[in-house]
Design a protein around this nucleic acid. Structure first.
Lengths: 140, 140
DNA sequence: CTAGGAACTAGAGCGAACTCTAGATCAAGC
DNA sequence: GCTTGATCTAGAGTTCGCTCTAGTTCCTAG
């Protein structure tokens, strides 16, 4: 029979949590929010069984989230995929927008990094000189 | 007289908001949260007057926040600076921890970026071929 | 003097992304 | 059959970092 019990090649929610790094709570939450492309299969008893494709998709979601894509965009993307071919332009637009966001973020972080390492340098110097100096301005 | 009225070289909250990119609300909030190194001067009428040093410090806060330092850490750092010399090791530790965080974040973002540009490539290809293909797996 | 805008305080509210709770059900091992 | 632990649902709660409200006061221009 089809969706009657655990099948090879399908995973329970706990296993998926392990494999994706999401909590079981988050997995259910993502499903409610419509982040999954298809409906998750269920066993006769009502437990979720995820396919490899589900897991693959979730891993992509994790990456996109990790890089700051809002859940709403992810949901929209899933919706587009669900709707099937024909809306690739919008999918591309979503990704493209996000790519710019990520690049901007990386740039901003790199600027911050140099500010920080400059400050770390100051403190390291100071400490290695046995904190012998008094010339601290309040912004250091 | 001293704190009786607006003085040259001191700015009102609105001007500081403009210069730092923070909202006036955020500025008051930061103050309440103890993110500032010293108490902000007030006019006789109770309005805040910020010094250039205050603005400088705020700009640093903005940078640190922008790069993901939690407000609590920022508050701790301010507290250390307020306490005066002698705690440079802890200040350094805070900065150093944050630096690692930023570097890890940059790395993660760069990985995401390559995933995204791979996907953008797929869609661009697809679209430029006049969406003539049907070989879509659900994870694209 | 009057009007209007900027700033004041204390505290409530908000959006994002989860996380946790309660109470019930399912499933596997002894 | 019974226990134990994983899952289930619906919905409440949490954390972070602001943002906004209400009601008031200050101050500058006309």
């Amino acid at each position: 029979m089809a969706t009657t019990g655990p099948r090879a090649g399908s995973l329970g929610i706990g296993e998926v949590a392990e494999r994706t790094g999401l909590s079981v709570h988050a997995l259910r939450f993502y499903e409610r929010e419509g982040l999954l492309v298809g409906p998750v299969h269920r066993t006769a008893g009502g437990r979720r069984r995820y396919t490899d494709a589900d897991v693959e998709w979730l891993r992509i979601c994790v990456k996109l989230r990790e890089s700051g894509m809002p859940l709403a965009d992810l949901a929209r993307f899933a919706e587009l995929v669900r709707a099937g071919p024909g809306n690739e332009a919008e999918r591309l637009h979503l990704l493209d927008t996000h790519q710019r966001r990520v690049e901007a973020r990386i740039q901003a972080l790199e600027e911050c990094r140099s500010l920080i390492s400059w400050k770390v340098g100051i403190y390291t110097d100071h400490l290695s000189r046995g904190q012998a100096e008094g010339l601290w301005d309040p912004t250091t």
